[in-house]
Amino acid sequence: MNPSFASAIAPLFSDGDARCMGGMGVMLRDFVYMADPAGDDVYADHANARHVLARLKGQETPRMPPGGTPWADEKIALFEAWMRAWQP
């Protein structure tokens, strides 16, 4: 079963994460933003979610969560499972 964004993914982001990243235009708890299929100059598709994942893994800056402890592997795996649900 695919993880639900509303019940499984959005709650992974703290209020502080959402406020901080929202100030940079990254809407962590907004399904429409996170599931947007559009690409950019780095990713061919789903660029918003892919950039968030890269920040969670420390592959892009600012690292997420900002100023906090990096996510446990289980949380990253859940986020990746949600992403795989819409990949061809």
Rank of each mutant, 00 (worst) to 15 (best):
E60S: 07
P65L: 09
R29P: 00
G16T: 13
G58C: 03
A47C: 12
A54L: 11
D40P: 13
K57T: 06
Q59H: 13
Q59Y: 10
D30I: 00
A72P: 13
A10T: 08
G68C: 05
D15I: 14
A8N: 15
D45L: 03
G23M: 12
L53N: 11
R55D: 05
D15T: 15
G68I: 06
M27P: 01
F31P: 06
D40T: 11
H46C: 10
H46T: 08
A18C: 05
P70L: 12
L28M: 01
R19T: 15
I76C: 03
L12F: 02
M83G: 02
N48W: 09
A38F: 05
V42T: 13
M21I: 03
A35Y: 03
L78P: 01
D30H: 02
D30Q: 02
P11Q: 08
E60R: 10
E74W: 01
I9Q: 02
C20T: 15
P11L: 08
R63I: 11
G68N: 06
P66L: 14
F5P: 02
G58I: 04
R19L: 14
G22W: 04
V26I: 14
M21K: 06
D73W: 05
V52G: 09
S7P: 07
A54Y: 11
M21A: 11
M83R: 07
T61P: 00
E60K: 10
L56C: 15
A38V: 07
A72M: 11
M27K: 09
M24W: 07
K57S: 05
A47Y: 10
W82L: 05
Y43M: 09
A81T: 04
M21F: 15
F13K: 03
L12P: 02
P66S: 13
A10H: 06
R50C: 15
I9W: 02
C20V: 14
F5L: 03
R19C: 07
E80S: 06
A6C: 08
G22M: 07
M27G: 00
G67S: 08
G23P: 09
G39F: 02
P11V: 09
R29G: 01
S7V: 12
V42F: 05
L12H: 02
G58L: 04
M83E: 09
D17F: 05
S7H: 13
G39K: 06
D15G: 14
F79A: 00
P62F: 01
E74D: 13
A6M: 12
P62S: 00
G68W: 03
D73C: 08
M34Y: 05
H51S: 12
K75Y: 02
K75I: 02
A81M: 04
H51R: 15
R29S: 00
V52H: 06
Q59A: 14
D73M: 11
A72N: 12
M34V: 09
L56R: 03
F5C: 04
A81E: 07
A8W: 05
A18L: 01
A54K: 14
M34H: 00
W82Y: 12
A44C: 08
V52C: 10
A18M: 01
A54P: 13
G23T: 08
R84V: 01
E60C: 06
